[in-house]
Design a protein around this nucleic acid. Structure first.
Length: 277
DNA sequence: CCCCAGGTAGGCT
DNA sequence: AGCCTACATGGG
């Protein structure tokens, strides 16, 4: 995909491999909304962008062009990926219903926090809790929006605070996250192979197999993972096998089938599932 | 009133 | 190792 950076703007040329709606609404990312002008706005850490559709493609307006260049993985060639995984019919259908989907590479701490909140929860409420978290503990970015609270701010937040923003029983995990994250951070995550990195993530309270896999995919861009939740469990029994398996076994089976394309396949299938319910 | 949501921790066998 | 259940909260 072609794009160029011009000052505080990234110009994406073409609409085949980039669509803000597909990217932001597919369930991998929670801090976004549609503004009064009808444009998508996305927030990561203390950075913000507004995405405007033009005749030729999209313009990503932001003071943090490098950050969103990385967040949206603009250097990755999705036409190739989509083609490769479309040899199976129902996967091709999922791909074709979200041609502009791209896996994000969001910052690690925000992703861990977001997906701890995601456990046994629904997307609407995950967004609500994260919005309240930023509003109450994050710095103001501008008139409209708040940054995600810094890691260090978490050392000052207790369980009652997280209960107050509606986190429910996950409040305990969030209150413990600061210390657990400090330990995790020290393990040199970027250098570890996927399985070892997952093992480190699993030491964080509130992070189980599925949440770990989401962090591996959406923050570390490890594509040899296949997060299995209630929705993907249904997809598995619908399309891949009728033998009763644990979610972990389903995940392993699909990773061994799709290899380093597993993460992409998973996300297209997940989005097609939640989009048409 | 019920059931469900991008599941996990802790306890039991 | 594998199974069972409690768990907070908002929406349908």
């Amino acid at each position: 995909m072609e794009y160029l950076v011009e000052g505080e703007k990234i110009v994406v040329i073409g609409k085949e491999d980039f669509c803000p709606k597909d990217i932001l609404e597919c369930g991998q990312f929670f801090r976004y909304y549609v503004n009064n002008a009808g444009n998508f706005v996305a927030l990561s850490g203390n950075a913000k962008c507004e995405i405007i559709e033009t005749e030729e493609g999209f313009e990503i307006l932001t003071a943090n062009t490098e950050l969103f260049e990385e967040l949206f993985n603009l250097k990755t060639d999705y036409s190739k990926i989509k083609q490769e995984i479309s040899s199976t019919d129902f996967i091709a259908k999922a791909v074709n219903s979200a041609r502009g989907l791209r896996i994000v590479k969001n910052n690690v701490f925000e992703t861990i926090c977001s997906f701890i909140i995601s456990a046994n929860n629904n997307i609407k409420r995950i967004k609500l809790i994260l919005f309240r978290l930023c509003e109450k503990a994050g710095k103001k970015i501008d008139e409209q929006d708040y940054a995600f609270p810094d890691v260090e701010v978490f050392s000052t937040l207790d369980e009652d605070f997280f209960k107050g923003i509606g986190a429910g029983y996950r409040a305990r995990y969030l209150a413990e996250l600061y210390g657990n994250y400090k330990v995790f951070e020290a393990c040199n995550p970027e250098k570890l192979p996927t399985k070892e990195l997952r093992a480190e993530l699993l030491k964080i309270k509130g992070v189980g197999r599925k949440v770990a896999d989401c962090i591996l995919l959406f923050a570390f861009n490890r594509f040899d993972v296949f997060p299995v939740d209630v929705w993907m469990e249904r997809v598995y029994y619908e399309h891949f096998g009728k033998e009763e398996l644990t979610r972990e076994k389903i995940s392993e089976a699909l990773v061994s089938r799709f290899g380093t394309r597993a993460g992409f396949v998973q996300q297209y299938l997940f989005y097609s599932k939640i989009a048409d319910k």
